[in-house]
Design a protein around this nucleic acid. Sequence first.
DNA 1: TAGAAATATTTAAATATTTCGATAAATAAG
DNA 2: CTTATTTATCGAAATATTTAAATATTTCTA
Lengths: 92, 92
Amino acid sequence: MEHKKAEKISKALADPNRIMIIKEVKKQNDALYCCDIDAIIDLSQPSICHHLKQLTDTEILIPEKEGRYVKYALNNSLIEEYIDFLHSLKTT
Amino acid sequence: MEHKKAEKISKALADPNRIMIIKEVKKQNDALYCCDIDAIIDLSQPSICHHLKQLTDTEILIPEKEGRYVKYALNNSLIEEYIDFLHSLKTT
DNA sequence: TAGAAATATTTAAATATTTCGATAAATAAG
DNA sequence: CTTATTTATCGAAATATTTAAATATTTCTA
């Protein structure tokens, strides 16, 4: 992974609300809906939308449209690539 | 790892200059000096100092004073803990 | 001890991010 | 077709981050 990409993923993970959202995706087993987040995070709907956009722009979350709803799944392989990048930084 | 801690590590990694610094620590085999960075990164001395502070505050880098100099080493075990946290986010 | 060199701190400006209210767009339900 | 519901976008305010000049601190060397 390019370090520019790793930087962007790091930035997307650098917020407590976005980490909460990712945790919730896991809890809901890759089937998190936008409106579920309202119940969990004390932010306005536009703010939640903004955080989701950062997570989907970086492809950490993969959105899938289902009628009026959007379902989010975690991009496990991207996380793996990011982990590989972190391993590559380590000294031996 | 607490997610507050993971958030802080993410934030510290969310900058191209700081990633460059970490890469340079690896290149120099855990023996990076402050003044070496001047040669690599086009930033003022106070800015470099500020970035190093973020990396040491989060304990990503471990500073060791050597007379007038400060030598930096990567905290490999913290990176491992951060990687474990990332694994824990993954869906199965 | 005085001067030089390396690193740290303070302060302020520029830029970026976060947040929310208002509003728009898309689709479902009646 | 009209209305309600879900998600997205715009615009503006509040907050945080990045940067560098000026200055301070620490320690080496002559």
